[in-house]
C-alpha cells in the first residue's frame, strides 16, 4: 500500500514540476504555452546528452537542464510570446509551432542530419538514461519497500516547491510576479518592469519543466514527442487547482497523482487515465474556477 502511495506521489511530483511552471506563466501572463511540454523533453534530452558527451550523471544534469530550458524559455518569451500579449489564440498557435520546431530539432540533430551528421543521443530513436546506483534499489520505510528513485523525485519536488514558494512570497521579484498576476496595468503604474519580470517568470517556469524532464528520464523512455502529453497533464492540474493559486496547484497535482497511482495499481494505466479525465471534468463542472481559485473582491 505504501508503495502504491509512493508511486502516486512521485507521479504527482513530476506533474507538479510541470504544472508549477504553467501555473505561474498562465497565472501571471494569461499565456497558454503549448511548448511547455517540450521543456520537459529538452530537460530529458539534456540528461541524455550530458551523460553521453560529458559523462555527467542524472544528479549533475539537474542544474544543467534547468539552465538550458530556462534559457530556451527566456528566448521563446522574448522572441515570440512577448509580442503576442493579450492575443490568447495567437500565442497558443505560435507556441504550438515552437513545440513542433523543438521536436524536429531534436529528431534532426539540430538540423545537422541534413548534412549527414548525427549527434549521439539525439535523432528519432528512443533514448534511455541510466539511474545511478546510489539512486536505484529500494529502501525500507516502516517495514515497507519503496523505490529509492521515487523517493528522490519526491524530495527534489518538495525542495523546488519550497524554493518557488519562497521566491513568490518572500522576495521582491515574487511580489512583482504576484502583483502582475492580479493587475498588470497597476503593477506597471507602480514602477514594475512587467516585460522583464514576465520573461524571467517564463524562464523560471521553463526551468522547472526541464527538471521534471530530468526526473522523467530516469523512469521513462526519452523520445522527441514525449512532452506532448505532459502539457495536457500540466493544464489538467492547473485548471483543477485553480489558476493563480500555488497551493491549489500543489494539492491538485497530489490529488491527480494519487488517483492515477491508485487506479493504475488496481487496473492499468489506460483506465487510470480515463478516471483522471472523469475526475477533472466533474471538478470543472462543479467548480469552474478550480478547487482553490483566487477570489477577487
Amino acid at each position: 500500500m505504501l508503495d502504491t502511495i509512493f508511486i502516486g506521489l512521485s507521479v504527482g511530483s513530476v506533474l507538479l514540476l510541470v504544472a508549477l511552471g504553467l501555473a505561474i506563466t498562465y497565472g501571471a501572463m494569461g499565456v497558454i504555452n503549448m511548448a511547455h511540454g517540450e521543456m520537459v523533453m529538452l530537460g530529458a534530452y539534456t540528461t541524455v546528452l550530458a551523460s553521453i558527451h560529458l559523462g555527467i550523471g542524472l544528479l549533475g544534469a539537474i542544474p544543467i537542464a534547468f539552465m538550458v530550458t530556462a534559457l530556451v524559455g527566456y528566448a521563446i518569451e522574448r522572441l515570440i510570446v512577448s509580442r503576442l500579449y493579450g492575443r490568447l489564440l495567437d500565442t497558443l498557435l505560435a507556441t504550438w509551432g515552437v513545440a513542433i520546431l523543438l521536436q524536429q530539432a531534436v529528431r534532426l540533430s539540430l538540423g545537422l542530419a541534413f548534412f549527414g551528421i548525427t549527434i549521439a543521443g539525439l535523432g528519432t530513436g528512443l533514448q534511455n538514461v541510466r539511474v545511478p546506483a546510489y539512486l536505484s534499489g529500494v529502501i525500507s520505510i516502516g517495514g515497507e519497500q519503496v523505490s529509492l528513485y521515487r523517493a528522490f523525485i519526491i524530495l527534489v519536488t518538495i525542495l523546488l516547491t519550497l524554493l518557488t514558494w519562497f521566491i513568490m512570497y518572500r522576495t521582491a521579484i515574487g511580489a512583482q510576479v504576484r502583483a502582475i498576476m492580479r493587475n498588470p496595468d497597476m503593477a506597471a503604474a507602480c514602477g514594475i518592469d512587467v516585460k522583464r519580470v514576465n520573461a524571467l517568470t517564463f524562464a523560471y517556469g521553463s526551468g522547472l519543466a526541464g527538471v521534471a524532464g530530468v526526473m522523467m528520464s530516469g523512469f521513462k523512455t526519452v523520445f522527441p514527442d514525449m512532452g506532448t502529453p505532459m502539457v495536457v497533464d500540466g493544464f489538467l492540474v492547473v485548471v483543477t487547482g485553480g489558476v493563480g493559486s500555488l497551493m491549489g496547484t500543489v494539492l491538485s497535482a497530489g490529488l491527480l497523482g494519487q488517483i492515477n497511482g491508485l487506479t493504475a495499481s488496481v487496473s492499468n494505466d489506460i483506465i487510470a487515465r480515463a478516471v483522471i479525465f472523469a475526475v477533472v471534468v466533474t471538478i470543472i463542472i462543479w467548480k469552474p474556477s478550480g478547487l482553490f481559485s483566487y477570489k477577487g473582491r
Binding site: 504576484r178 502583483a179 492580479r182 493587475n183 496595468d185 506597471a188 503604474a189 507602480c190 514594475i192 483566487y294
Partner: peptide, 24 residues
C-alpha cells in the same frame, strides 16, 4: 517610455475604483 519608466520618473497614479490588490 513604457509605463514603469514614467512611474519611476516620478508620476504616481491613484486610479478610479482604487484598484488595490484584495489579497495583498
Amino acid at each position: 517610455q513604457p509605463t514603469f519608466r514614467r512611474a519611476r520618473a516620478g508620476i504616481a497614479y491613484v486610479p478610479q475604483g482604487r484598484q488595490i490588490i484584495p489579497d495583498f
